[in-house]
Design a binder for these strands. Structure first.
Lengths: 147, 147
DNA sequence: GTACAACCTCAAGTTAAGTTGAGGTCAAGA
DNA sequence: TCTTGACCTCAACTTAACTTGAGGTTGTAC
C-alpha cells in the first residue's frame, strides 16, 4: 500500500499547518520521533499528523508542551493509536476544559457581584482579595484592600 | 488627613501580594505612577492598591499587560476611581470572560464529537482535520483551530 | 549618630515556545 | 549531470513577564 509512505518534514508541515521549525522543535521536546532517510533527512509516519494535531488542540486548551508530552507518552510511535487511546486522552482533555470553564464562571460571578457593589468599599469583595497569593503567615487573616 | 498617607513599595507589596520587583516592573510598563520621596524612593497612593489588584484579576483572565494598560488608561492616577469607572471596566472584562467560555465550550463540543467518532477515520473530524486551516494564508503565525 | 532594613538603578538571567540565519547537504526533475 | 528547492545543524534572537544580583543610598529605631 502506498498509504504507508513516509512524509518529509515539509509535507507534515503542510498537513498540520505547523511550521517546519516548530516540528523540529517538537521533535526536540519528544512529541514526535521521526526516523531518518539514508541521507539524514527526517521521515515521519502518517500517524504523526494525528499526534501533532493533538498537540495543537491541547495547546489551545492551555496545556504546556510538557503536559502534552505526558499525555502523548501513552501513544506508541510506530503504531496507529487505537480508539481506546483517543477516548482515554480525549476524556482527560474534557476534564481540563470543564475545569477551566468552571473557573472562568466563578470569576465572572465574582465580577458580577463586584459590578453590583461598586467595588469601591472593598472590605469584603471576593475579586479583589488576593489571599491566595499573599503569604498566609503572621497574625490574623490578611485581608487586603480595605480602605 | 492621615488617611492620605503614602505607601512605600514594600507596604504596597504586602498589601497586594505582589513582589517588590514586580511592582517596579509594572511601573516601568505604565500601570502605576508613584511619586518620589525627597530621597528618591517611590511613594504610592492608596488607590494604587486597587489598580494593582485590578491588574492581577485581569491577568488571571489572560489579558496581557498591554491590554490591561489600555483598560487602566481611563482611570486617573491621582483620583479614587468612581463607581462608573469600575462598572465600565468590569463590563468589558465580563465580555472577555464570556468569549473565553464560549470558545472553550465550542472546543469541548468538538472534542465530544470526536470521542464519539473514535477519531480514527479522520476524514471529516472537525478537531483533527487540519485541511481547513492549512494553506490559507501567507507568512506569519498560522493560527490554529479557528472556526 | 549610627546601625541596618528597606530602598535605589541597571544589567543580566529565566522560561516558554518558537523563529531566524548562516553555512552546508540531499533529492528529484530536466 | 546539473540545478534547485527542500532539507540539515547549531547558535542566536524573540516576547512576555518577571527575578536576581551587584553595588550604592535612604530612612528610622535605638
Amino acid at each position: 500500500m502506498p498509504e504507508t509512505k513516509a512524509l518529509t518534514i515539509g509535507a507534515l508541515a503542510a498537513r498540520t499547518g505547523l511550521s517546519v521549525s516548530a516540528i523540529r522543535f517538537y521533535e526536540e521536546k519528544g512529541l514526535v520521533e521521526p526516523f531518518r532517510s539514508s541521507g539524514g533527512q527526517r521521515r515521519f509516519l502518517r500517524s504523526d499528523i494525528r499526534r501533532l494535531s493533538f498537540v495543537l488542540i491541547a495547546q489551545q486548551l492551555g496545556l504546556s508542551i510538557g503536559e502534552i508530552e505526558r499525555q502523548l507518552a501513552s501513544l506508541p510511535h510506530g503504531r496507529t493509536p487505537t480508539q481506546a487511546d483517543w477516548t482515554r486522552i480525549s476524556k482527560a482533555m474534557r476534564k481540563v476544559i470543564n475545569a477551566r470553564i468552571a473557573e472562568l464562571e466563578r470569576t465572572r460571578d465574582r465580577l458580577d457581584g463586584c459590578i453590583g457593589c461598586g467595588c469601591l468599599s472593598l472590605k469584603k469583595c471576593q475579586l479583589y482579595n488576593p489571599e491566595d497569593r499573599v503569604g498566609l503567615k503572621g497574625p490574623g487573616p490578611r485581608l487586603v484592600l480595605e480602605d
